[in-house]
Design a protein around this nucleic acid. Structure first.
Lengths: 332, 332
DNA sequence: GTGAAAGCGCTAACAC
DNA sequence: GTGTTAGCGCTTTCAC
C-alpha cells in the first residue's frame, strides 16, 4: 500500500503539501496539486484511516448495541442509523448481544478500545447498565427504552399515545369490553403503554376489568401464555384485546386460534409497534406504527451533532408521534 | 485517557515492560507485573486499539456487505457472523447498500481506508462487482450467490438440492402437475434451483408444462405478478406451485388469495429458504431451510482462518445441505 | 505557499 | 528480564 511519503517522493513535494491537497486544508498551487493528484492516481494511493484516527483522535465510527438482531424491531432502526452514517462517511460497528446481557459490558470495553466516536444503544432500561455506559465517558444516545429518571439524550416514541390510538380505534370499531395484555413493568415502555391504556379507557368512560389486564414479557410466548390464563379464568370473554406489542399480539392470536377462537370475528386483536411481520401475519395485524426507521435516523443524527460539538450538549429527548395502521385483526 | 507511558511512569517501569504484561508477550517478574497491574487499575487504563492497529497492521475488524438488512434473509446470517466475531474479539462493520448498487464501491473504499482485515459479501452475483472486490486486494469470502465461473472462497447452499427436496415433498403429497415460479436467471441461485426443479421432475417421470414455468425476480411483487399472468394464460390450474424463494411464495399466495383461490385447499405452495416470516405467514409456509445462521457463522470462520494465514489459502467452497420444513401450505 | 519536524499510542527489535 | 529506541502513516504547528 502506498503511503503519503511515497506520494511526496513521486510528486517531488513535501509531505505537508500532499496532506494539504488530500484534505484541501490549505492552498496549494495548481501546478503542485496536479503533480500530487497524478502521483496518487498512479500509485493507487488510499489514505490510511487508522493513522489518521490516531492523530486526529476521532475514528468516524460509531458503535450500535442492540439486544437481538433477529427481533424484527431492529432492522429498520439499524437501516436508519446506517443510512445517515453512510451519508456522513461514518461507519457502524454492529454489536448484537444476542440477549446475553453480560455481553454489553464486553462491547462497551471494545468500543472504548476501538476509540469509536460515540455509541447508540437500543432498549437499555436497567439503571446498572446506564452506570456502565456513563463510566465509559463515551458520547451516547439511548433509543426506545430508558432507565428510570433518565434525562439525557434519547430518541423514542410517545408511548401513552400509542395506547391511546389503539384504544380509540377499538372504541371506534364499537368494542367496549377490552382486555390489555402488557409487558414487563420494569421497562418504561410497558409502564407507559399500560398507563396510557388505562387512562384512555377512563377517558372514554369505559371500565377496565382487572381480570382482563395481564402483565408479562415482550414475547410471543408471554402473549400465548396469558391467553391460556385468561381463557381459564374468565367466563365472559372480552370483545377486544389490546397488546403491548406486535409480538405479544402474535402470541395472543396464536393462543386464540389454538382455542378455536377466531380473530377478528370472535375477538379483535390490536398490536403495537407495527413490526415488519405484521402485514402478512396469520391474520394481518392492525397496529400502531412507531417509525422505527426514523428512530434510528434521528438518533444517529443526534449523535453526530454531539460528536461535532466538543462541549457537552444540552440533553435532548426526541419523542416521535405514533400512527394507526388498520389491517384486518380488528374487523370491518 | 491514560496511555502506556502514564502506566510506565506510575509503575516506575519501562514502556516495554508495560507492553509485555499487557500482551503477555514476555516474562515479567511477579513484582513488576503487580506494580503494572495496579497502575493500570488505578489509572483505569485501556489499550488504544487504533495505535495498536497502526503498528500491527491489523485491526481485528471485518466489513460485512449486504444488500438490504430489511430482507429477512439477512438477520440470521449477520447474527452468525457477529457471534463468531465476538468470540474472536473481532468487530463487524455493517455495510447495508439498501439495494443501491453503487454504494458497494464506496463501501469497498471505506473498508480499504479503515484497514479492515477482511470482508464478507452476501449475494454478489455480478462479474463486475467481483472485479472491484479483487482490485481492493482484501481477503474476502462470498456468501450465498456467486458470479459465473467464480471458484474462490465461498459459502452457500446446495441449490439444486433445495429444489429436489421441494419437489419430492410435493410429489409425496400426491401432486403431479406442478408449476415453477423462478427468479432472475442472471443469478446463479435462480439458475441452479430451476435446473434442480426440472431435473427432479424428470426424475419422477413428471412433465413440466412450459406454460407453468415463470422466471422473475426475488420479490413478492414478482410472485404476485406471475400468478396474475398464469391465471390469465392457463385454463387448467396446476395442483401445486414451487417457488424459487419464500418471498416469491408470499407473492404467489397473496395473488392466489386475491383471486379467491385457497392455499392449500385449491393449490399447494412450496417456498424455498425458510425465512423467519414463513412460520406465521398468512398461511404457514412449507419451505426449505438453508441454515442461514450457519452460512454466516461458517463464512466468518473461514475468513478468520484466511486472516490468520498470511499466505494465500487454497480456495474453499462450503456448500451447506438444505432441509425440508413442513408447515401448512402444501396440505395434509 | 511550501517544507521540516514533532508526535499521536503502540509494538518489537535490540542493547544491556 | 528490563529498558531504550525506532518507527507504523498521518496531521499540524512553525519556520522560511
Amino acid at each position: 500500500m502506498a503511503t503519503m511519503k511515497d506520494i511526496s517522493k513521486k510528486a517531488n513535494v513535501s509531505l505537508s503539501t500532499v496532506s494539504a491537497v488530500i484534505n484541501q486544508s490549505a492552498y496549494v498551487s495548481p501546478e503542485l496539486t496536479k503533480r500530487v493528484m497524478q502521483a496518487i492516481e498512479e500509485l493507487n494511493y488510499r489514505p490510511n484511516a487508522v493513522a489518521r484516527s490516531l492523530k486526529k483522535k476521532s475514528t468516524n465510527t460509531v458503535g450500535v448495541i442492540v439486544t437481538d438482531i433477529l427481533n424484527p424491531f431492529y432492522p429498520p432502526m439499524i437501516k436508519g442509523i446506517e443510512d445517515v452514517s453512510f451519508n456522513h462517511n461514518f461507519n457502524v460497528i454492529l454489536c448484537n448481544t444476542s440477549n446475553e446481557h453480560k455481553r454489553i459490558r464486553t462491547y462497551l470495553e471494545l468500543m472504548l478500545e476501538k476509540q469509536v466516536d460515540g455509541i447508540l444503544l437500543a432498549n437499555i432500561a436497567k439503571a446498572e447498565d446506564l452506570i456502565e455506559i456513563e463510566k465509559t465517558g463515551l458520547k451516547y444516545v439511548l433509543i426506545n427504552r430508558k432507565p428510570p429518571f433518565y434525562d439525557k439524550h434519547f430518541v423514542g416514541v410517545n408511548n401513552p399515545l400509542t395506547s391511546e390510538l389503539a384504544v380509540n380505534h377499538l372504541v371506534t370499531q364499537g368494542y367496549k369490553r377490552i382486555a390489555y395484555f402488557g409487558g414487563n413493568l420494569e421497562i418504561n415502555t410497558a409502564r407507559e403503554r399500560k398507563d396510557g391504556f388505562i387512562s384512555c379507557m377512563a377517558h372514554h368512560g369505559l371500565d377496565v376489568d382487572p381480570m382482563l389486564v395481564f402483565d408479562g414479557e415482550y414475547s410471543l410466548e408471554s402473549g400465548y401464555a396469558n391467553v391460556k390464563k385468561m381463557l381459564a379464568q374468565v367466563k365472559k370473554l372480552p370483545e377486544a384485546i389490546c397488546a403491548v406489542s406486535d409480538i405479544v399480539a402474535f402470541g395472543v392470536i396464536k393462543g386464540l386460534r389454538d382455542a378455536g377462537i377466531r380473530v377478528p370475528e370472535d375477538i379483535a386483536v390490536m398490536g403495537n409497534d407495527n413490526s415488519s411481520f405484521s402485514e402478512n401475519f396469520l391474520v394481518p395485524l392492525s397496529s400502531i406504527d412507531h417509525s422505527t426507521y426514523d428512530m434510528g435516523k434521528l438518533s444517529m443524527e443526534l449523535l453526530l451533532e454531539m460528536i461535532k460539538e466538543k462541549n457537552e450538549m444540552r440533553a435532548r429527548q426526541i419523542i416521535l408521534t405514533p400512527s394507526l395502521v388498520v389491517r384486518e385483526s380488528c374487523g370491518k
